[in-house]
Simulated scan of single mutants.
Amino acid sequence: MDCHQKEYKSWEGSHHDLAMKIADTNTVLGDFNDVEFVHKGISTRFFKNGKDFMVNTEGPDDKYHDYKVEYTFGVEPLQQ
């Protein structure tokens, strides 16, 4: 960063800079206010547990589990 300040300033805040971030209130774009989404009969709920962003959905064992969102990938037009 020190030796390439011009390039760093150009990169900072770009989609490349925002490509992968730790999930927090500044980086998560989705609605985690206890929102439910149903697709092909599978219910998925997005919620918060304290500061953690959580998803409750069907797991590989066909049972529902809570999964903590650790990172965000992308920013627009789609975040995963």
Rank of each mutant, 00 (worst) to 15 (best):
T25Q: 14
E76N: 15
F37Y: 12
G74D: 12
M54V: 07
I22Q: 07
D31M: 13
G50V: 04
L18R: 09
L29D: 11
D62T: 15
V28R: 08
N56D: 09
D2W: 02
H65L: 04
D24M: 10
Y67D: 09
D31F: 10
Y67S: 04
V55C: 10
H65V: 02
E7A: 00
F47K: 12
P77F: 05
D24Y: 07
Q79Y: 02
T72D: 03
N49I: 01
G41S: 11
Y64S: 04
V69K: 06
P77W: 06
V35K: 14
F73M: 15
T27H: 09
V38T: 15
H16A: 13
G13K: 00
Q80G: 13
F73L: 15
P60V: 06
Y71S: 01
D62Y: 15
K51V: 10
E12F: 04
Y71A: 03
Q80E: 14
L78I: 12
S10D: 09
L29G: 10
D62V: 12
D62L: 15
R45F: 07
S14I: 05
R45W: 04
N49Y: 05
A19I: 07
T57M: 13
I42S: 03
S43H: 15
F53A: 05
K68N: 01
H4F: 00
F47G: 10
P77A: 08
L29C: 12
V38P: 06
K40N: 09
V75A: 12
V69C: 13
T44E: 14
E76C: 14
L78Q: 10
A19T: 04
F47C: 10
K6A: 06
D52S: 10
G74H: 12
V28Y: 06
T57I: 09
G30T: 03
G30I: 01
S14Q: 03
V75Q: 13
L29E: 14
A23T: 04
G13M: 00
P77Q: 06
F37G: 01
M20L: 14
I42V: 10
N49P: 00
V38N: 15
C3T: 08
F53N: 05
F46A: 07
V28P: 11
V55S: 07
H15K: 13
D52P: 05
V38L: 08
Q79S: 06
K48T: 09
N56E: 14
F47A: 12
G50F: 02
Y8G: 00
D62E: 14
K68F: 06
M1P: 01
E58Y: 07
Y64V: 12
P60Q: 02
F73G: 14
K68W: 03
F73E: 14
D61R: 00
D66G: 01
G50I: 02
G74P: 09
I42E: 03
I22H: 05
D2I: 03
N49K: 10
K63Y: 10
G13T: 01
D61I: 02
K51H: 09
H16V: 07
D34W: 04
E76V: 13
F32T: 11
N49T: 04
D66A: 02
P60I: 09
H39G: 07
Y71L: 07
D2L: 05
K48N: 05
H4Y: 00
H65C: 04
N26G: 11
M20A: 13
C3M: 06
H15P: 11
G30D: 06
F46I: 08
I42A: 04
V69L: 13
I22E: 08
